[in-house]
Design a protein around this nucleic acid. Sequence first.
DNA 1: CTGAAAGCGCTAACAA
DNA 2: TTGTTAGCGCTTTCAG
Lengths: 328, 328
Amino acid sequence: MPESVRAAVTIDDVALAAGVSRSTASRVLSGAGSSSTSAGARVRSAAERLGYVPNPLARALARGEGTRMVLGVSGVSPDVHDLYLGLAMSGVAEVCAPEGVGVSVQWLPLEAPDAPLARLAEDRGVRGVVLINTTERVLDAVPVGLRGRIASIGVGSAAVPSFDVDNGGAALAVISHLYLTGRRRIAMVTGPAWLPCSRRPVEVYKSVMQSAGLPDRIVPGDFTAASGHEGALEILRRWPDTDAIFGICDATALGVLSALRGLRVDVPGDVAVAGFDDIPFAALSAPALTTATHPVRQIAAAAAGAVLDRTAARPTSYPSRLVLRESA
Amino acid sequence: MPESVRAAVTIDDVALAAGVSRSTASRVLSGAGSSSTSAGARVRSAAERLGYVPNPLARALARGEGTRMVLGVSGVSPDVHDLYLGLAMSGVAEVCAPEGVGVSVQWLPLEAPDAPLARLAEDRGVRGVVLINTTERVLDAVPVGLRGRIASIGVGSAAVPSFDVDNGGAALAVISHLYLTGRRRIAMVTGPAWLPCSRRPVEVYKSVMQSAGLPDRIVPGDFTAASGHEGALEILRRWPDTDAIFGICDATALGVLSALRGLRVDVPGDVAVAGFDDIPFAALSAPALTTATHPVRQIAAAAAGAVLDRTAARPTSYPSRLVLRESA
DNA sequence: CTGAAAGCGCTAACAA
DNA sequence: TTGTTAGCGCTTTCAG
């Protein structure tokens, strides 16, 4: 491609080479409007030959779209070390790149998500928003300006399509496994109370325990390993005969493991431990962590895709798979 | 701000409200060109009052800039689960967001980085590139079109400013610690041979061993935990009296730890283990991993900042800090 | 120092 | 189906 050496070939060059007007070229190249097959062929071949690549900025400006997909992350404070966020970004970025859109992250304070959301809605550079760790507060604060170009990884609403892992199914699989392998005094370290999607697993846990006629043993956590560590300590203090601990996520479960190790409690001999997410390090702990998969990247990609397509996507739930290792 | 309800306020609105021409408004708002103090004040106050926010797309189109910062990642294949990449993205995204630029990721195949790089250079939507896991091959393939808007996290060149952690210093700190705590039969699991920045630590290791009159024990790895696991096995097979293993990164060191555990080798009693990066899970392993910090996010942010500023940044090295835990 | 005018590259009515 | 005509919102010569 010798012409690629020269500067930017525009749609005018293509139109000229194909012997049609700029509009016609635009129609066939952008796929909008109708055009004759012959014109279409000529334009396409000219574009191919010249190595034409549409300028995403010009296109976006003309269409009134943005070129930035923003990940709106709720939380008490920005948590940049969250590896869940890294995966989500990567999934979103992959889907957005072909369209020439990049991704950025915007923290949404738990108690005041309105202002940042409003700003995103007015920013002409923003193509759409993918919510993460979504709360009802955020759902209520979604400005009309974002309608049709917003999706949520987590809970959704009438106006915000939801894409999420089957939290309930995953929790059920893990807890059932614990139960079916003979555990009866099962405890759980939960996620932050403000996070809706961390409530499902707790409900499932409660209902399983209840239908088995067992009392529940719940301790609050916040998705961190530290909370798992302290949670395990508290559990063993309050209910010394506990024989299994379910961590709401792998980080928490890993924290549980480290606490039990400190206490010289045998895992899974005395206490079984299970988590959720199947992060890479779940396979490396001692003992290796039993958990359930969480296809974050795939989910994030789907959410971003829905926003890009502006297609009225319906809520989608992704399956989780139990991963049996040594800890339970 | 009642006017924020209405649609996009443009620079024309501001100019009108300030009683100046659009050009003048543009000059003061974009900081380019000169303008009288009085005009400046009027424009600024009008902009403030109307809640004016420049449209990043229009600005970029007019200036001939892009709105996407791409992370060019070298590797044998796209590794989306790399948590190093997540941190880098997050650092770059934070710096780019205020400018209205988003980030995306482009894999650069080891043997053929030229085509993707050329494509990036010609893509009018691309603001600049931040290289990661940079190789000499990539450095050589940087198209002129990218000059002045590219930086590297890792090795650099005359045309590509480098931002990196002080790999040599970090390795020296870790190895010295091993030596000073009495270890003499120290082995190392390295990173992939194609990665320049993973060579420094190896050189440091070799030179330390040599000046101590000790033979080196090197086994190749690839930054994965799996390679650490196998590396440790091989080390103990070849040199059964090894009393310390330095993993090129924490993931690898964690793999080493899991292998030693399987072998029932006492750590740090029989063998000390140390890594590099200080990832969150380094504190959770059993025993907790001794390592050295690696401010990836900060480095990535600096690299992105340099690209945005188009400022001729000189190579910058970031210090690493030794983190003593239980494994060594 | 300031304003008028000409684009940046593309899309989208509107007629023909 | 096609071409013509206006923009999208901002920057930037170029005169004054």
